[in-house]
Each structure stands twice: as structure tokens, then as C-alpha cells.
């Protein structure tokens, strides 16, 4: 690591202020890794652990507020999360390891950077790390890379599992910064690479994520989180799918599908989801939806498999969410 100053503010305003010239640290499980690799070189670390942002509580509108500093473990095993938002619990527990989840925080999970090995290897070109240096992933190692929403400059993916579930649940993010507090819809939080892959979120300098807000409906009866990876645990997704559904009898009233491992953000296609409205619950419906969602997919030599794999995973997740195989 390079030298940096350590700052431990005790209130949000001070933190935010300090954050304009430094990096925030919460659990540190991703940031410290990147600092060791010399990918991140902050001159100052601003420790967010003493701001009282670690609680989980019910909100007035019947939803749930997840403190940004609550750990992934606390969140995943929280009784209300387990009971009312089981997809979130499932997704969190599908990521990382118990040790990492014990340290990693909800806010940090959102801000994870890609796991593209070229991004981590400072001796390789990478447009996200060094804009303009190139993207070897396109012709090289691209199993973990995007098939949707990528650009010529970057095909990296967002590695989170938790975020995929949050996207399906239509969560909102509350942030606090030098210009006060604001809310960001989950869909607008992560950015696609375009020609500026180094900019990954819509956070402004100095803005701190304070909470994640879950709406009242957690789809506890009809959900699935299905993750395809190369080993049974402790591996990033090739493709992951968070699916939730609302059913009336055998009729699908609403279906939402968010994909992980395929884009720089958890991917949803609202237009395609209209194909899940008022449709019979069957493999054909799910397949049509998957085809529509994947229509714009663009692949690279190392990840052509991801389109049909994503298709299969979507069908599987929707089948599980709608209990199709038990029908």
C-alpha cells in the first residue's frame, strides 16, 4: 500500500467533508484488497464505522431500512430480512465467505469494484484503471465479463450478489453529502461504462451511503436467487438471477428479473418484463422473456456461452420463483 492518512470522523458532516479529498472505508474488504494491488491509492481514509449507521429498522411505509454500515452477515440473518425479504438473505449468503460477510457492509457491497483480473493486475492495460490504456479482456479472459450494456472501452461486470436482489426488489439508496441528503433509485445508482468506465456510480464526491431502503413488498412467497459459478461456493457469478413474481392462481401477474455477472450493474429490462405480465406460468413464457431480455446481448470470444447460460438460468429462476415444477 501507499501511505495514507487515517481519519475517524464522529459525525456525517465531518465525514462527508473529509470524503471530498479521500476515500471512505467501512468494512474494507474490497478497498484494502485494491490498495494492496495498487489499484486504489487514496491519500486519506475516512473511517465510517463511528457514525451510527449500523442499524436495521422498519420504516413508516412498511418497508425496511438497512443501515449502510450493518454488515452483510447481520443483514442476511436479520429475522425481518429472513422472513420478509428472503431473496435478499439468499443473495447475500451466496456471495463471498462468512469471514468476509462478517466485515463487509451493505454500503460497501454496493460500491464493490469489478473482479476483472486485468483491472487487478497493474501490469496489464485496463481502461477502468488507467483510462485509454486498453481492454485486453475483450480478446482474453472474459468469463466473468459483460454481455449486456458494455462498451468498447470496458466489459467489466459488477460482482455483487446482494445488489442483484436489491435491484429485483426495487430498493432505494439514501445518501448524504456536502449538499445534504438525497435518494437514488437503485436502477440509477450504478452506471454503465460508456467511454468513462472509471466512473461507476452516480455518487458525488463526498457523498456517503447512509441506508438502503426496501419497499414493503419483499416477495417472500415467490422468489428465487440462482447463481451459476465455477465452484460450489466462494466464487463470483458467471451468471446470477434474482427473480420475484406475483401470481394469481397459475397466472403470472408480475415478474421481475435482475441479472448479475452480465453487466456493469445488476441488469433489468423493464420492457422485457412486460412479457411476464398476465401470462401463463410456463417455460414458454419464461423462455420468451429471456430471449427478449438477451436480444441485445453482445459477446466476446471468451464469454459466448453466457447468453444461452443466462437464458437457462432465467428460466430456472422463474420456474423456482413460481414453483413451476411443483405445479
Amino acid at each position: 500500500m501507499r501511505p495514507f492518512k487515517y481519519n475517524r470522523p464522529l459525525d456525517l458532516a465531518t465525514a462527508s467533508n473529509a470524503g471530498t479529498s479521500g476515500s471512505f472505508i467501512a468494512g474494507g474488504t474490497n478497498l484494502l484488497d485494491l490498495m494492496k494491488c495498487d489499484v486504489e491509492q487514496p491519500s486519506q481514509l475516512v473511517d465510517l464505522n463511528h457514525l451510527g449507521l449500523g442499524s436495521i429498522s422498519e420504516t413508516a411505509d412498511g418497508g425496511l431500512e438497512l443501515g449502510a454500515l450493518a454488515t452483510n452477515t447481520t443483514t442476511a440473518y436479520h429475522p425481518i430480512v429472513q422472513e420478509r425479504y428472503p431473496i435478499l438473505s439468499r443473495a447475500i449468503l451466496a456471495g463471498a465467505s462468512p469471514q468476509l460477510r462478517n466485515k463487509a457492509t451493505n454500503g460497501g457491497n454496493l460500491l464493490q469494484r469489478t473482479r476483472c483480473p486485468y483491472f487487478f493486475d497493474t501490469d496489464s492495460p485496463c481502461n477502468k484503471r488507467v483510462p485509454g490504456s486498453g481492454c485486453p479482456a475483450k480478446e482474453g479472459y472474459s468469463k466473468l465479463h459483460a454481455i449486456l450494456g458494455a462498451s468498447d472501452s470496458c466489459i467489466a461486470t459488477h460482482p455483487s450478489d446482494m445488489c442483484v436482489a436489491l435491484r429485483a426488489l426495487d430498493a432505494t439508496i439514501r445518501v448524504s453529502g456536502p449538499h445534504g441528503e438525497r435518494r437514488i433509485e437503485f436502477a440509477d445508482f450504478h452506471r454503465l461504462p460508456g467511454d468513462q468506465p472509471e466512473i461507476e456510480t452516480s455518487l458525488e464526491k463526498g457523498e456517503v451511503i447512509t441506508a438502503i431502503l426496501l419497499p414493503a413488498d419483499g416477495f417472500a412467497d415467490n422468489f428465487a436467487y440462482f447463481k451459476v459459478r465455477e465452484r460450489a461456493s466462494y466464487a463470483f457469478a458467471l451468471v446470477s438471477v434474482a427473480a420475484v413474481a406475483r401470481l394469481e392462481g397459475n397466472q403470472l401477474k408480475e415478474g421481475r428479473v435482475a441479472l448479475g455477472g452480465v453487466a456493469a450493474k445488476p441488469w433489468r429490462d423493464l420492457e422485457a418484463e412486460s412479457l411476464l405480465c398476465d401470462q401463463p406460468c410456463n417455460a414458454e413464457t419464461f423462455g420468451n422473456f429471456a430471449d427478449a431480455l438477451l436480444q441485445s446481448a453482445k459477446t466476446y470470444p471468451g464469454n459466448r456461452f453466457k447468453v444461452p447460460m443466462a437464458r437457462a438460468a432465467i428460466v430456472r429462476a422463474l420456474s423456482e420463483a413460481t414453483h413451476l415444477n411443483q405445479l
Binding site: 473482479r115 483480473p117 486485468y118 487487478f120 493486475d121 501490469d123 496489464s124 485486453p136 480478446e139 482474453g140 479472459y141 466473468l144 465455477e230 465452484r231 460450489a232 461456493s233 466462494y234 466464487a235 463470483f236
Partner: peptide, 25 residues
């Protein structure tokens, strides 16, 4: 060990991307 022939490097040089079985496997 994934050799990126254009860079001439093994690129997945860590335990996150060079997979050995974990307990669950």
C-alpha cells in the same frame, strides 16, 4: 492457469480466479 497469449501472462493469478475446490465442493 489462464494464459493470456496476447500479454504473455497468466492472468488469473490469485485465489479468487484460480479456483481450487472449497469445502462445499
Amino acid at each position: 492457469s489462464y494464459m493470456d497469449n496476447s500479454l504473455g501472462r497468466f492472468i488469473n493469478h490469485d485465489f479468487a480466479n484460480y479456483h481450487i475446490p472449497v469445502n462445499a465442493d
